[in-house]
Design a protein around this nucleic acid. Structure first.
Length: 349
DNA sequence: TCGCATGGGAC
DNA sequence: TGCCTTGCGC
DNA sequence: GTCCCATCCTAGCGCAAGGCA
């Protein structure tokens, strides 16, 4: 049954700045056999229904604030999007939290995909229940890996690639509840590196799922360290954390209250980036922050309070790429962080 | 998850 | 069967 | 009285599933 929001279905698409990495790597590709493993989805038990009094409508402020940081405020995807040309010999990796593939496709996902022409595209919150067979995707990306949640139309992570990986993994080793991880992680192993795409657990309204997130962080940290001992790692996707106070517009009022900016989350993230000395692990690089040490640029804006227009956002969901230990690798010849873009992210939390 | 109103404590 | 409402997550 | 801080309350979207004519 189609959703019946039509009458009130305002087209709500927020564009965000997008981060992307062109990582030149002549040996990125491999001759390994294709390991596209289909994910399956299972019907979920229906949710318990509770009665709730309808909220009283409140008049909205008609304030037309001035955009801040020159960030785009349009809510629909333009038909024509331009990105800088790819560098010769580079592999372009991009990430986008699409908040529903079906919805994204209605709103111009195709335009973005054609314009960006990423070699590897990480998608999060796909909300798909089966591996999509859309020719638009299959023609451009011969290798597609969909991690699908057991919970219908919930979470979902995918990596679409023009390059064939050696192997693919949809698990987070060591996590005590593998079911809760389904749909949140895809790891591709290439000849020269690992690429991880994640849709990290959201700490939830009232931080009610912070414990689950802490559990995720604990095991993910171990996992990424283990991989890094073997090959360099690139990690992208929706990381659901604003690492530092310059990664969100109002750090003071949100500290330890709002999911994405709590002590537990920021500390866990910092420890992934800069492992404690005793662990002997190599430090990792937040590429966006490395190249834009002071820029306040956000990837997420709340629907509430006209945050988009006011420039009140967070750098938390997409736009984060972390290239780990690239310097010891001869494979990665150059690294360019291109923050141009139109990131299409109309998620809300 | 912003910005305002409200209330309480410190000074 | 299909429109409409409700609930949930973010 | 003034300042500071904590707390409260709030929007809009995508989607599935249930209610009901």
């Amino acid at each position: 049954m189609p959703p019946k929001r039509a009458a009130a279905s305002k087209r709500k698409l927020e564009e965000d700045s997008e981060s992307e990495v062109d990582a030149a790597t002549s040996k990125f590709a491999s001759d390994a056999s294709d390991s596209d493993a289909p994910s399956t989805s299972k019907p979920k038990a229906k949710k318990a229904k509770t009665t709730k009094a309808p909220k009283a409508a409140k008049p909205k402020p008609a304030k037309a604030a001035k955009p801040i940081n020159d960030q785009p405020t349009n809510k629909t995807l333009p038909d024509e999007i331009q990105f800088p040309a790819k560098n010769e010999g580079c592999v372009r990796i991009a990430t986008w939290n699409i908040c529903g593939l079906a919805a994204a496709q209605k709103k111009g996902f195709k335009h973005y995909m054609e314009a960006e022409d990423a070699d590897v595209l990480i998608l999060t919150e796909t909300k798909v229940n089966n591996d999509p067979v859309d020719p638009m995707l299959t023609n451009r990306y011969p290798h597609r890996y969909w991690s699908i949640s057991d919970k219908k139309t919930y979470s979902g992570t995918a990596i679409l690639s023009k390059i064939k990986p050696l192997s693919v993994d949809y698990t987070l080793p060591g996590h005590p509840d593998p079911k809760s991880i389904k749909g949140r992680i895809v790891t591709l192993e290439f000849e020269s590196l690992y690429l991880i795409g994640t849709y990290v657990v959201n700490a939830g309204t009232g931080l009610k799922t912070l414990d689950a997130k802490n559990e995720w962080n604990k095991h993910f940290t171990t996992y990424i360290r283990d991989l890094d001992r073997k090959k360099p790692v690139i990690w992208g996707g929706d990381l659901n954390v604003a690492p530092t106070e310059i990664d969100l517009a109002n750090p003071k009022t949100n500290w330890n209250k709002t999911p994405g900016y709590t002590e537990a989350e920021t500390r866990a993230f910092a420890e992934i980036l800069t492992p404690p000395e005793k662990e002997g692990a190599k430090p990792m690089i937040d590429t966006w922050r490395k190249m834009h040490p002071e820029t306040r640029h956000y990837t997420y804006f709340s629907y509430r309070f006209n945050c988009r227009e006011k420039g009140l956002g967070w750098r938390l969901d997409t736009c984060k790429f972390f290239i780990f230990v690239i310097w010891h690798s001869l494979i990665l010849i150059s690294l360019f962080l291109l923050v141009v873009g139109i990131l299409l992210w109309w998620n809300m939390r």
